[in-house]
Design a protein around this nucleic acid. Structure first.
Length: 313
DNA sequence: CGCTTTTGACCCGCGC
DNA sequence: GCGCGGGTCAAAAGCG
């Protein structure tokens, strides 16, 4: 990535919608902005009145809405393209469309990157370097998956849902556990050829009624990242999910971008569900912050606004 | 005591 | 047919 921009565009988005102190943090006394030349500039900001804060909140909300719409468009386009690709592939091998494939052979299920957990995956990310590496890894894997669609893609939408989640973890932690709100029962562990760290196999503790399985393995490239692969969809609510709540189910593609309002709705939520939502939001943020086009555009918008405000004063 | 985890054995699909 | 590797089984051990 060419970072020839005069300003450092690496972003540290506050993507923690659960930080209830967010509005209180707004009236800063001074803002430090560091440029690529290492020059730190300080802007003195007057205490903002409640109306100003409300205005800002509205503005953030509308921006939030716009981003949501953009994401929806991107998602739709992607879906359309993928659908088109499927059509082309099924035209190449129409005979296998009618063959029922056993669920076992779904390792390269292309839906993996249609479903949210893979397409926008990350974890409770605190560190941008690991973000970066696993973003590359995702892209690499997605390419591989696109190139290695072995099974007919038509049934991938109806059968086993496979999704991959990348979760940052302490490299000294050998437990291979990924907290996702569900209860899992470990039934095996194996050292695989391509990765020195062992792979753990989990079944949903509601098994055999719930068919969901999970594989967890440390990333070969970055041992600080756990790669969790989910197969199937839970046919029950999460252990702490309320009735009608489906967002915590594996394979769900529901994306909530309401970072401001979302955080306030959580009063009665359980820790597990909160963690799950945090992971989802962080996944989204990680994807956005790793998109050079997005960060460049955002940086341009921010610097433009700062310069405008500066010239006004 | 019941549930979970560990771990070696076994099964099965795939490539040669 | 054989060997390899990933996935699963199941008995034993661990734990609360």
């Amino acid at each position: 990535m060419d970072c020839s921009s005069p300003l450092d565009i690496s972003l540290n988005l506050n993507t923690n919608p659960f930080d209830r102190s967010f509005p209180a943090k707004l009236p800063k006394e001074e803002i430090k902005v560091s440029t690529s030349a290492g020059v730190e500039r300080k802007w003195l900001v007057k205490d903002k009145s409640a109306s100003e804060l409300r205005e800002e909140l509205n503005r953030v909300n509308s921006e939030n809405k716009k981003i949501k719409e953009m994401l929806a468009t991107v998602y739709e386009n992607y879906y359309a393209l993928h659908h088109h690709l499927e059509k082309l592939q099924s035209r190449k091998s129409p005979e296998i469309d009618h063959i029922e494939q056993p669920m076992k052979k779904t390792k390269q299920d292309p839906e993996e990157f249609l479903g949210f957990p893979n397409g926008l995956s990350s974890g409770k990310t605190e560190n941008s370097s690991s973000n970066q590496s696993h973003h590359y890894q995702q892209q690499h894997e997605q390419k591989n998956q696109l190139l290695s669609c072995k099974r007919p893609v038509t049934d991938s939408f109806n059968k086993a849902r496979v999704s991959t989640v990348y979760v940052p973890a302490d490299s000294s932690d050998t437990s291979l556990t990924v907290k996702d709100g569900y209860q899992w029962r470990k039934y095996g562990q194996k050292v695989t050829r391509d990765n020195p760290s062992p792979r753990a196999y989990f079944r949903c503790s509601f098994a055999p009624s719930c068919p969901v399985k999970k594989k967890v393995q440390r990333s070969a490239e970055d041992p600080s990242i756990l790669v969790a692969t989910y197969e199937g969809t839970h046919n029950h609510l999460g252990p702490n999910a309320s009735a009608g709540d489906a967002t915590s189910q594996a394979g769900s593609s529901t994306v909530t971008l309401d970072m401001v309002h979302g955080g306030q709705k959580l009063g009665l939520e359980t820790n597990e569900r909160r963690t799950m939502q945090e992971v989802l939001v962080q996944q989204m943020a990680s994807s956005l912050t790793n998109d050079s086009n997005f960060t460049a555009a955002l940086a341009t918008a921010i610097t433009g606004r700062l310069l405008m405000e500066q010239s006004r004063t």
